[in-house]
Amino acid sequence: MNNPLEHTWQSVMDQLKTWARINSPWAIHFNSGSCNGCDIEILATLTPRYDMERFGVKLQGSPRHADILICTGPVTRQARERLIRIYEQMPEPKFVVAVGSCALTGGAFQGCYNVMGGIDQVIPVDAYIPGCPPRPEAIIDGLVKLLGSLKADGAPERASEPPLAASVLEPSS
C-alpha cells in the first residue's frame, strides 16, 4: 500500500463493494432447531404483502453466494456443526442476523438437554430481532437497520465477541 495510486484504487474498490452489497444483499436462511414459527414469518416477508425484495434482499440457496445468514431457532447439538460449516462457507464480509427469541437466548427451550442456547453461543451475530416470532415488519426493520449500519461505517457494531475458537472449527470425523 505504499503506492498512493494503488491506495486510492483500493479505497474506490472498497466503496464500490460496500455500495453494491448494500443495494443487493443476498441472504441464506438456516433453521438450527426452530419451531418453524420464525421460518414462516421470514417466508411471509418475502411474499407480496411485505415484499422484502424491494430492499434488494433475495433469499437464496447456497451459502457460497450469500452475504447475510438469517438464523432461526436455538442451536441444537445436532445442528451446531452444520451451522458453523455454513458460516465458514460464506465469503467475507458476512453478517449474521438472529431472528426470534430462541435465536437470541434459547427462549422457551432454555434448559432442554439438546439445546446449546442462542446463535451467538456458536457464531458471531450482528443483528438481533426479538419476538416469538417477530412480526414480518420487525424482520424487515432489523435487516434495514443492519444495512443502514453498513452504509454508515462499512461494518456493524458487533454486540458479541466472536466465540469461534480453533477447537470449535476442527472438521468433524
Partner: peptide
C-alpha cells in the same frame, strides 16, 4: 437436527 428435548423439558 431439530431435536430439542422437549418431552424431557
Amino acid at each position: 437436527y431439530v431435536h430439542r428435548g422437549i418431552e424431557k423439558g
